[in-house]
Design a protein around this nucleic acid. Sequence first.
DNA 1: CCTACCGATCGGTAGG
DNA 2: CCTACCGATCGGTAGG
Lengths: 215, 215
Amino acid sequence: MLRQERFIDYESGTVKRILAAAETVFAEKGFFGARIDDIAALADINKSMLYYHIGNKERIYEVILHRHFKKIADALENALMDCEDPIEGLRAVVDIHAAMFDSEDKTPRTVAHELAGGSRHMTQTILDEYVRIHSFTASIARRGVESGLFRDVDPSRIHIMVTGTLLVMAINAPFRNLLAKRIDQSPATMPSIDDMAEFLMDVILKYLTPNDSTS
Amino acid sequence: MLRQERFIDYESGTVKRILAAAETVFAEKGFFGARIDDIAALADINKSMLYYHIGNKERIYEVILHRHFKKIADALENALMDCEDPIEGLRAVVDIHAAMFDSEDKTPRTVAHELAGGSRHMTQTILDEYVRIHSFTASIARRGVESGLFRDVDPSRIHIMVTGTLLVMAINAPFRNLLAKRIDQSPATMPSIDDMAEFLMDVILKYLTPNDSTS
DNA sequence: CCTACCGATCGGTAGG
DNA sequence: CCTACCGATCGGTAGG
């Protein structure tokens, strides 16, 4: 009866198809714009199966949102496991966010929808993943300061600058295409998210290491 | 018959009430989440009057979205009219975006919803306002380079870094409050959008003017 | 896993 | 004939 409220069989092929479809639809329309029927149609299953296997619209959404945050946290953990150098660590944080926020990816659009909607679906477990994500930037900054390499600065400012710039850069893609058409400029001449990641890294390093000889 | 499709009497008190209500509802829920009935209820007006005075949901939304972009462009134009100094100009661009993206304001949430949704409602007139907005940053950067004060850099990178960081900082506010509760930290200790604007200005100036004696 | 439905609400429009 | 506006309801679809 209430079992499907608690337990989700992630090994089930049906569940995987539902989650893949839900990820796409939520990324395109956000929670309010997404339609349960669209997810069911894309997953090629009966609508009632969504409720049987996972739960209501809110529950499916929370599973998807959690997965996006966990994916970023896991990628950071994997890259920074045996990284001692603060500059290399910072570069990994920037590059991994750029990779996760590729404009083809669903992560940036879903996260942006959720933030714009007032973060009304942020559960404790989702917040925990963000705490993990943020802790990597914080520990890199701390190590940089301790080794005398970095200027002492609130790491959350660096983190918001990196993630904010790359998030907007990612969801901006359709807008920049319209703009390129409007001003009769080839889309190819506009900076890519990888260009932006490189630029960000450059700007932040020049700020954090002002006395470095490489400046 | 079809006249109301083209002409909107912005002087009408009824129109003003409708637009104020629509601005609030669209900011909270985005285009897909917003309900015509909610807008009508908030404006304390009969629903059919929305269609009579302005048009359908899409048309109302486009009017609101245009107003947000125009407001930013007008504020920039006003501030930069008689500004010669590139550094002062850059500071004005950052400060005005920070003021427009105040977390209490509707502008950042509506813009973020639109970008996350794939910029599906961007008309030519709205794009024109963005071209105006961007042109200010571009001309400031150009003047800075010409005077030998700034490093030569693609101005759109600076612009996206400024607007991206501040936009996410603005719509982040509810998320940061949840986070502060989660890690048992007072929200007061978290950086405000004005702190972030100051930080951004500092970081960008250190990048653009590396040889400046004030570094 | 499907068919057949529900209470309510959606965006938009009818006549007067 | 115009304006500003109302009560009631249109055909479809929402989550469940």
